[in-house]
Design a protein around this nucleic acid. Structure first.
Lengths: 135, 135
DNA sequence: GTAGGACCTGGAGTGGACTCCAGCGCAAAC
DNA sequence: GTTTGCGCTGGAGTCCACTCCAGGTCCTAC
């Protein structure tokens, strides 16, 4: 897990800003390389720099953005809605109210999901107790 | 929503036990008719009686079983594992320990999912607050 | 007896989100 | 300077869990 073990320097320090290969970015973000490429293709990640030979170089800004995407994805937001959010994020500060609205609506959905899970977890516990009582 | 409004009697009372058409069963269980047929096909539901002309007749036992399936499905259990559980349930009381084990393992998975959702919900709230602070 | 909705079957199609592949070009370490 | 492994592309394939369809039968009410 030590990045110095990589034959190819995964973390590349140029003049001012650290950049990461797609492999390192995958490791740090929790997405696979394929998913990162896929997200770039469909417009969820933008402005990924390339080396003269075409390799991607991700930045800390990308990692931060990816942590947002990961949160949204893992809480069940559809890609299409993430895309809407990404578009707004690219369009500047005047879209902040709409971004807030999206996040709040999504938070409500997450709350509902958690409530549903909690209820079903209880049902599960009841089943387990029942089985134990007849075992 | 009154079943007497159905042109075809959805709830059929024969001699001893109430039975339900697939439409009524769908309405009561929360699954679609297609899903019920699909579940029968893959062996998640068994012993569905048929009228002489081939129509399915579900019982209250089926509805109870379907509520279990619904709980498992809605908490993210894969169909294959539900199938394993269904097989055990069909095989008699001596499988109860394994059924308990499955449910307990699944409950742990649900707990983990809930914890993850809770953490990500907090992250979301933080984002919302941040956006509000700069809006 | 006829209209209109419910139900049947087997099989094909869908949607979402990746995931994999071939065939290739680079990079770094020795 | 070669080996080993990372990364590239475009496009095809996968997985899961349904969902839909055509073409037919059946049921109930009027």
């Amino acid at each position: 897990m030590d990045s110095s073990a990589n034959p190819q320097a995964a973390r590349v320090s140029s003049t001012a800003v650290d950049t990461y290969t797609i492999g390192e970015c995958a490791r740090r973000s929790g997405f696979t390389m394929d998913t990162l490429r896929y997200y770039e293709r469909i417009g969820l990640i933008e402005d990924i720099a390339r080396t003269p030979t075409g390799q991607r170089r991700f930045t800390d800004d990308h990692l931060e953005w990816l942590s947002v995407l990961k949160c949204l994805r893992d809480t069940g937001m559809p890609v299409e809605q993430m895309h809407r959010f990404a578009t707004l994020a690219r369009d500047g500060d005047h879209t902040i109210p709409e971004r807030i609205a999206i996040l709040q609506a999504h938070k409500l959905a997450v709350d509902a999901r958690m409530d549903d899970l909690a209820a079903k977890r209880d049902y599960l516990l009841g089943k387990i107790d029942y089985y134990k009582s007849v075992a």
